[in-house]
């Protein structure tokens, strides 16, 4: 029944994936912890831990938010808003606006996560790991893997990334205020660099490059007149134009 046994391996399939079982795929996903994205996530989470300390919340809050949300922009929003004394309703609204971006990411990763085998529940639970970093890594690695290994590999990536971000938050909380300002700024700067370079690394088709340029150019412009929905509008407009432009050339 498994089509994949007879189907030829993907040309870009990593060597370990040939004849690998699911635990192996999971372990190779978990190893993301030691790769650039894992290290970058750990380092940027240090900044979040610092922020939680600054807001005089507890170490437990820092780790809890990292585990339960696992999306740095929303985590930062919660702490920042609570620190400013915003009402809970206002906090929830702001969080929801930052979380809308997870919708297109989740939709676009679905074809890779939904193997024919594997339980619905396991596929459903996997969406908790979808945030920019795991989305980028998933997009980059999953298409080349045999279908039966994809979910296990994605779980490995997810666990690794959650471990990186929660341990980073905890360490950042403890080290807070002992780091020089320049070092803090350099750590914070890793987030946009990593997002940009890894999106460039995943870009293949002309459509991807147009999306990168348009999305990047539109976001600050849209922010000026509609700060609440800037990313969503920049994504929809930039992505749609890129899609149409990519279509007309193929």
């Amino acid at each position: 029944m498994s089509v994949d046994v007879i189907a030829a391996a993907h040309p870009d399939a990593p060597g370990w994936s040939l004849g690998a079982d699911k635990p192996t795929a999971f372990a190779h996903g978990l190893a993301v912890l030691l790769s650039t994205p894992g290290v970058v996530l750990f380092l940027t989470a240090l900044g979040f831990g610092t922020l939680v300390r600054d807001a005089s919340m507890t170490l437990g809050h820092a780790v809890f938010l990292s585990l339960a949300m696992y999306a740095l922009p929303a985590q930062v929003m919660v702490v920042d808003q609570l620190q400013r004394g915003a009402t809970l309703l206002a906090v929830a609204f702001a969080v929801t606006l930052t979380a809308v971006r997870l919708l297109p990411m989740t939709v676009s990763l679905q074809p890779y996560i939904r193997a024919r085998e594997g339980s619905r529940l396991a596929q459903f639970a996997a969406v908790h790991f979808i945030a920019i970093t795991a989305w980028i890594e998933g997009n980059r690695r999953l298409p080349a893997l045999p279908e039966r290994l994809r979910l296990a590999h994605f779980y490995g990536i997810g666990f690794g990334m959650v471990a990186a971000t929660s341990s980073g938050s905890a360490v950042g909380y403890v080290l807070a205020q002992r780091m020089p300002l320049i070092l803090q700024a350099a750590l914070l700067f890793m987030t946009p660099s990593y997002f940009l370079l890894s999106t460039m690394a995943a870009a293949g088709h002309r459509r991807d490059w147009i999306a990168i340029v348009l999305g990047g150019a539109l976001a600050p412009l849209v922010y000026v007149w509609m700060p609440a929905a800037d990313l969503l509008i920049a994504g929809l407009v930039g992505g749609s134009v890129a899609y149409l432009a990519g279509r007309s050339t193929t």
Binding site: P73, R101, P104, M105, V107, S108, I132, W135, I136, N139, P192, F195, L196, T199, A203, R207, D208, I210, A211, I212, V213, L214, G215, G216, A217, L218, A219, P220, Y223, D230, L231, L232, A234, G235, L236, V237, G238, G239, S240, A242, Y243, G246
Partner: peptide, 17 residues
């Protein structure tokens, strides 16, 4: 392809912001 382009543009927008 469209959803992926939207997600890519969105991530890039986050970078410039």
């Amino acid at each position: 392809l469209w959803v992926r382009a939207v997600a890519t543009a969105l991530v890039s927008g986050m970078v410039t912001k």
